[in-house]
């Protein structure tokens, strides 16, 4: 059983890091219900696994690991059940201000669309890069070398830029 203090601490951390969870959910799923399901699942695993947090790592490293592992595993499982339709030109069918706060800006939408089209691991990597994590921390979260992170980030950025430029033509 968790104590009230643990619950309060967890809620405080969650409140401070809610943006991370929302961005991960937005990058993996299109519909409001799928995003909410994923957010719940991430929060559950963070809450359940909180006691297993290893203080050798930064809290954010642990949180990103759990959140991205849950997101990738859930996405892969869902993908087998149905062909997930990635972002199209149409807006998400069930907009919600929690998960898609007025994404009317063309640029934000474009970037989201193209991130959503990346493979799961590339997607995780580029989210961490945009979240301004150092290559060292990205390497710890993903489990590859810093050099490999640098190479991949560079390639994914180029691909994103190219796709966005092409989409704007």
């Amino acid at each position: 059983m968790h104590t009230q203090q643990e619950r309060d601490d967890f809620l405080k951390l969650l409140s401070e890091n809610q943006g991370i969870i929302i961005k991960i959910c937005n990058s993996f799923y299109k519909t409001k219900s799928d995003r909410e399901d994923l957010a719940q699942e991430i929060i559950y695993h963070l809450w359940k696994g909180g006691r297993g947090y290893n203080p050798d790592f930064r809290f954010s490293t642990w949180m990103y690991r759990v959140a991205l592992n849950v997101a990738i595993s859930s996405y892969r499982k869902e993908k087998k059940l149905k062909d997930t339709i990635l972002f199209s030109d149409k807006p998400p069918e069930m907009e919600d201000k929690i998960f898609s706060p007025q994404l009317s800006e063309e640029n934000s939408n474009l970037l989201q669309q193209h991130i959503a089209e990346l493979k799961e691991l590339d997607k995780a990597l580029i989210i961490l890069y945009f979240e301004e994590k150092s290559y060292k921390e990205i390497a710890e979260i993903i489990g590859i070398s810093e050099t490999n992170v640098a190479t991949k980030v560079s390639r994914i950025k180029e691909r994103l830029k190219q796709n966005i430029v092409n989409a704007k033509k």
Binding site: S15, Q18, I22, I98, P101, L103, S108, L111, F130, K157
Partner: peptide
């Protein structure tokens, strides 16, 4: 430019103040 696009998106999420502690509690 890419980073700006992400920041713009980030700000929108922050501005929305979408979740609060009480709701999660």
């Amino acid at each position: 430019e890419l980073k700006e696009m992400w920041k713009e998106y980030d700000q929108r999420i922050e501005q929305a103040k979408v979740l609060n502690l009480q709701a999660w509690a």
